[in-house]
Simulated scan of single mutants.
Amino acid sequence: MSVTDRTVLLAGATSASGIALTRALVDAGARVVATGRSAERLAPLRAIGARVEVADATSLEAMTELAARLGGVDAVLPLIGGWRGGGGLAGQTDEDFHTLLPAFDAVRATSRAFDTALRASDAGRFAIVSSTAVGRPLAGGATYAAVKAASEAWTRAVAQGFAKAARDAGEPLRAASVVFRAKALDPESLVPQVLALWDVDAAALNDQVITLD
Score class of each variant (00 low, 15 high):
residue 135 G to K: 14
residue 159 A to W: 02
residue 187 P to M: 08
residue 61 E to Y: 05
residue 145 A to R: 01
residue 88 G to R: 14
residue 114 F to E: 01
residue 90 A to Q: 13
residue 55 A to R: 12
residue 152 E to P: 01
residue 211 T to D: 15
residue 140 G to W: 07
residue 88 G to V: 12
residue 134 V to C: 08
residue 208 Q to N: 09
residue 44 P to F: 13
residue 128 I to M: 13
residue 120 A to K: 08
residue 10 L to N: 04
residue 199 D to T: 13
residue 211 T to C: 12
residue 86 G to M: 09
residue 110 T to F: 06
residue 112 R to D: 14
residue 170 G to L: 04
residue 19 I to R: 07
residue 55 A to H: 00
residue 192 P to K: 12
residue 124 G to T: 03
residue 99 T to G: 02
residue 49 G to M: 10
residue 157 A to G: 14
residue 134 V to K: 03
residue 188 E to R: 09
residue 51 R to M: 10
residue 161 G to V: 04
residue 135 G to I: 06
residue 84 R to D: 09
residue 188 E to L: 07
residue 190 L to S: 03
residue 140 G to V: 10
residue 41 R to D: 08
residue 92 Q to H: 08
residue 133 A to T: 08
residue 203 A to K: 15
residue 72 G to A: 15
residue 137 P to C: 11
residue 126 F to S: 03
residue 20 A to V: 09
residue 71 G to I: 06
residue 204 A to F: 06
residue 74 D to Q: 09
residue 38 S to G: 13
residue 197 L to Q: 10
residue 6 R to P: 02
residue 110 T to L: 11
residue 182 A to S: 13
residue 199 D to V: 07
residue 28 A to V: 07
residue 6 R to G: 04
residue 148 K to W: 02
residue 189 S to T: 15
residue 50 A to Q: 05
residue 170 G to Q: 03
residue 116 T to G: 11
residue 164 K to W: 12
residue 209 V to R: 14
residue 191 V to E: 05
residue 105 D to E: 15
residue 104 F to P: 00
residue 156 R to L: 15
residue 105 D to S: 15
residue 190 L to A: 01
residue 136 R to E: 15
residue 179 V to P: 03
residue 178 V to H: 01
residue 146 A to F: 11
residue 67 A to S: 12
